[in-house]
């Protein structure tokens, strides 16, 4: 159970909500509404105020790297720090098992990062995060660069994770995706939650 109280930072909040394990929530709203800021604040990647609890544990009592392993954020724009794809994965075996589930070639881990398309980067960065088995997944437009087939596979993978008890918060512009993921909706406007 993720509990948020008075979460705020410049341009956002205060925001309150709770999200149980195995539940999904979609954050929608116009560009610049603070959707990504909310995900970044939850992952503690920017300075923010408020109380954030996970299963009764105060975020402030958990070291930040440990927190981000449990509450994992996948940015809309993926980041890469080495030339080879494989060097971005702590556990290559676990990564290989997930490749097919997101419709990626089994050799993708041996490719150079420079040849990846935006959609391939998007799926690989999702896998990279899933290997750590987070309790809460914060996904920022996870399928924006994918074709229909890949989108379907990624959504199926996400649904299976939620069925296994992962809490999901997803930023999306795709209304039908919200339904397919069975997510409740939070609408943001100018950094505030509004009733649509």
């Amino acid at each position: 159970m993720l509990s948020i109280k008075n979460l705020s930072r410049p341009g956002l909040g205060p925001i309150d909500f709770t999200l149980a394990g195995g539940k999904a929530m979609a954050i929608v709203g116009p560009s610049g509404a603070g959707k990504s800021l909310l995900l970044r604040a939850l992952a503690d990647l920017d300075e923010n105020d408020g109380d954030v609890w996970l299963d009764g544990e105060d975020r402030a009592d958990i070291p930040a790297p440990e927190w981000r392993k449990r509450v994992a954020y996948v940015a809309a724009e993926s980041g890469w720090w080495a030339d080879d794809v494989g060097r971005h994965f702590d556990d290559l075996e676990a990564a290989r098992k997930l490749l097919d589930q997101v419709n990626l070639n089994e050799n993708a881990l041996t490719w150079p990062v420079s040849r990846l398309s935006t959609g391939e980067k998007q799926r690989l960065s999702l896998i990279r995060t899933l290997i750590g088995k987070p309790q809460v997944l914060l996904l920022d437009e996870p399928t924006s660069a994918l074709d229909d087939d890949s989108k379907e596979r990624v959504e199926a993978l996400i649904r299976s994770l939620v069925a296994d008890g992962v809490s999901l918060i997803v930023v999306t512009h795709d209304k039908s995706q919200v339904q397919r993921l069975g997510a409740r909706v939070m609408t943001l406007k100018n950094g505030q939650e509004v009733t649509p």
Binding site: L45, P65, R68, K69, W80, W81, A82, S125
Partner: peptide
């Protein structure tokens, strides 16, 4: 310039020393 690479590592739970290593 490499902000997204550094933040990707931090988001994966790497500590700052590891995130900045390259």
């Amino acid at each position: 310039n490499e902000r997204s690479a550094i933040e990707a590592r931090l988001a994966l739970g790497h500590d700052r020393a590891r995130a900045f290593r390259p």
